[in-house]
Design a binder for these strands. Structure first.
Lengths: 115, 115
DNA sequence: GCTTGACCTGGAGCGCGCTCCAGATTCGAG
DNA sequence: CTCGAATCTGGAGCGCGCTCCAGGTCAAGC
């Protein structure tokens, strides 16, 4: 199975080398497999997972949130627990959307006023 | 005209005293009028403006963004300039909404999977 | 006038999320 | 085998957005 060097993984995901290492230290990704000499070898699965993490980071979730997310999806939890957690997170994101809509509304008012 | 003490303003806006002072130092609000003895006296206009700032902060805008926002709305700018700025900001917020929707979509997938 | 509490200023401290650095090791082309 | 590029680790540093603190001033009830 073909793997990616750290540089290639960074390139593919758009995440810096330092941040990839940071995410791994924080338990958001990996642990990533290592070569005999200790260099990281990223699998496609790793890359996919990094994509998920990036998606949530861009949505404004914090590192601690993501750690929890990883824990819930990986460790032993009943489907009910997972779903409850996911729904709760979903609710938080919807609230953020609402906050954004509100701000956009204010902007629209101002635009209408000057437009 | 009736004014509010710092404590009352904090109460009304839900923003801490320290943060109110911080916002004023950063030029996001005020300058707030002072009593003879140097204590702040918040007007209703101040409170309203603090509400706007809070709205944008909750939408995720940074202090620097808000400072710029204040500058554009207050200083001498043509309506065109203001509208251009406001539209640009609006676009940025819509992008955030899109990022959130994407993350919510991922959550929905997971929920469907476990549900 | 005194006391008590709210408020003032300037500056230090903090948690987050990276980002950068030093010094050592590994990899791979030639 | 050699050499330069890539990677490793541990830890320091940084910008943001507050938050807290010390030491002093102001305001209001008794």
């Amino acid at each position: 199975m073909t793997t990616l060097t750290p540089a290639a993984a960074a390139e593919r995901t758009g995440v810096s080398l330092d941040t990839l290492r940071y995410y791994e230290r924080e338990g958001l990704i990996g642990p990533v497999r290592r070569s005999a000499g200790g260099h990281r070898e990223y699998t496609e699965d790793d890359v996919f997972w990094i994509g998920l993490v990036t998606c949530f980071r861009e949505a404004g979730l914090g590192i601690a949130d993501l750690r929890q997310f990883v824990a819930v999806l990986r460790a032993e939890h009943t489907p009910q627990e997972r779903v409850a957690f996911l729904r709760e997170r979903r609710g938080a994101l919807e609230e953020r959307v609402a906050a954004l809509r509100k701000a956009i509304g204010v902007l629209d008012e101002k635009i209408a006023y000057y437009g």
